[in-house]
């Protein structure tokens, strides 16, 4: 598992597909999530493109593409049940899956220990 400074977690499977969600820390900071707007897929993205909008009771936030690649799947369940983002941010409430062009770019992200230090 890798983590970004934007409080996303990245889970890389055996085939190199990256699943992206937000950390429990981020979900807690957001407060109650009431709406999630997901992109149409497939969608080619560049790092830092705004790909998902999350509306909480407090404010709207963006999830940015963590890396260049193509979004191949989104978690449609979040459209109907946005509160899942608060209930299970690092499990069921993943946002999208993407293929990436350069797996070595993942090396720049934090591991769990480094992320914990980052938010401490």
């Amino acid at each position: 598992m890798k983590y970004t400074e934007e409080h996303e977690w990245l889970d890389i499977d055996d085939e190199g597909v990256v699943t992206v969600g937000i950390t429990a820390h981020a979900a807690e900071q957001l407060g109650d999530v009431v709406f999630v707007e997901l992109p149409d897929v497939p969608k080619t993205v560049s790092k830092d493109d705004e790909v998902v909008v999350i509306e909480s009771v407090k404010a709207a936030s963006d999830i940015l593409a963590p890396i260049d690649g193509e979004i191949i799947e989104v978690n449609e369940a979040l459209s109907d049940e946005p509160a899942k983002v608060n209930d299970d941010p690092e499990g069921d409430a993943w946002f999208f899956r993407m293929t990436i062009e350069d797996p070595s770019a993942l090396d720049d992200f934090m591991d769990e220990a480094a992320y914990k230090k980052f938010i401490a």
């Binding site: 996303e8 937000i22 981020a26 999350i54 407090k58 404010a59 963006d62 940015l64």
Partner: peptide
């Protein structure tokens, strides 16, 4: 995750 709206608590 950057916030986009101006109407938040900050």
């Amino acid at each position: 995750m950057p916030e986009r709206d101006a109407s938040d608590y900050d």
